[in-house]
């Protein structure tokens, strides 16, 4: 079937995010007085490059390290070794006070629409928070503009998060992320908690805003079908490593790495099911018992 043509990124397109040989180990609580604390290797040497204006997907299952990678890119966690370079600045070991430009240019949208908004704050204060932090005047004008941009009415600003549905909360999250006019948007499973009939709206909204505002999008998900729709390129992660990178259409149609093959084959789709695929076919590529 025809794919939408991915934006071509030649060598001249500047790099938005470069990750070089990134490693993150977590110590686990000690289990014995005599032995050293066990270590979890969340990331084992990850490298990737995201061009400006690109829609880049990161796909993997729980515990593959995608959330850790994302936190390191957003400088919310410290790497054990390796480098994260965002728009020509190596942010890996910068102290918080020198991250000001990153905090403006890179914003996040999270998965859980229940936990990503402070229940005790009004929507307008939630959206204005990044502006206040950056010392911009948080005008009501800008908040109304943002609410409108994400398809909410202006009076939504006076209400509290619990008065909104999951999809509307995710719109509020997106408005907050866009407030400081970032150039990079990182979305961490932004639609996995949403109903199917609402998911399409939020995906469209993200897609439109990325186009309109010329954003670089990093879209993290466990769902390769969603990533395939949203992103130009994708990196597949497993056990703290990137096992495959490529154009999403190619990775989906002809996965190279055995893990990706297993992943792609395990995704149930309507098309396959209606042409007779059964649950046994989901396991086609040698599922370990």
């Amino acid at each position: 079937m025809p794919e939408h043509i991915p934006t071509v990124h030649d060598a001249e397109t500047p790099t938005a995010i470069r990750v070089v040989d990134l490693v993150r180990d977590y110590p686990r609580p000690r289990t014995s007085l005599l032995q050293p604390a066990p270590v979890v290797h969340a990331l084992r040497g990850v490298s990737l490059e995201v061009k400006q204006g690109e829609r880049f997907g990161i796909v993997g299952e729980s515990g593959c390290g995608k959330s850790t990678l994302l936190r390191l890119i957003a400088a919310l966690d410290r790497a054990t070794s390796g480098h994260v370079i965002v728009e020509d600045t190596d942010i890996t070991r910068l102290p918080e006070r020198r991250l000001r430009s990153l905090r403006e240019n890179l914003q996040l949208v999270f998965q859980d629409p229940m936990s990503s908004l402070d229940p005790r704050m009004r929507v307008r204060d939630i959206i204005a928070e990044p502006l206040v932090v950056q010392g911009h005047p948080a005008s009501g004008e800008r908040v109304r503009e943002l609410l409108e941009a994400v398809g909410l009415s202006a009076d939504a600003g006076d209400r509290y998060p619990h008065q909104f549905s999951g999809g509307q909360r995710q719109r509020i999250s997106i408005a907050r992320a866009l407030a400081p006019r970032p150039r990079i948007l990182i979305a961490d499973e932004p639609v996995s908690a949403l109903d199917v009939s609402v998911r399409a709206q939020v995906l469209n909204l993200i897609s439109d805003l990325v186009d309109e505002l010329n954003l670089t999008l990093v879209f993290v998900s466990h769902d390769l079908s969603v990533v395939k729709h949203v992103c130009d390129r994708v990196a597949v992660m497993n056990a703290g490593q990137i096992v495959e990178t490529g154009y999403t259409g190619d990775v989906y149609a002809a996965p190279q790495h055995p893990y990706t093959q297993r992943l792609v084959s395990a995704i149930p789709t309507l098309q396959r099911a209606l042409s007779g695929a059964t649950t046994a076919d989901l396991l086609a590529k040698g599922e370990p018992a």
Binding site: H4, S165, S197, V198, A200, Q201, S207, T269
Partner: peptide, 19 residues
């Protein structure tokens, strides 16, 4: 229509409003 991610267009068909 809303769950059809195989669509060739960038925009997905949506059901208006919220559940």
């Amino acid at each position: 229509a809303a769950s059809d991610l195989e669509t060739t267009s960038r925009r997905l068909t949506t059901i208006p409003g919220n559940v």
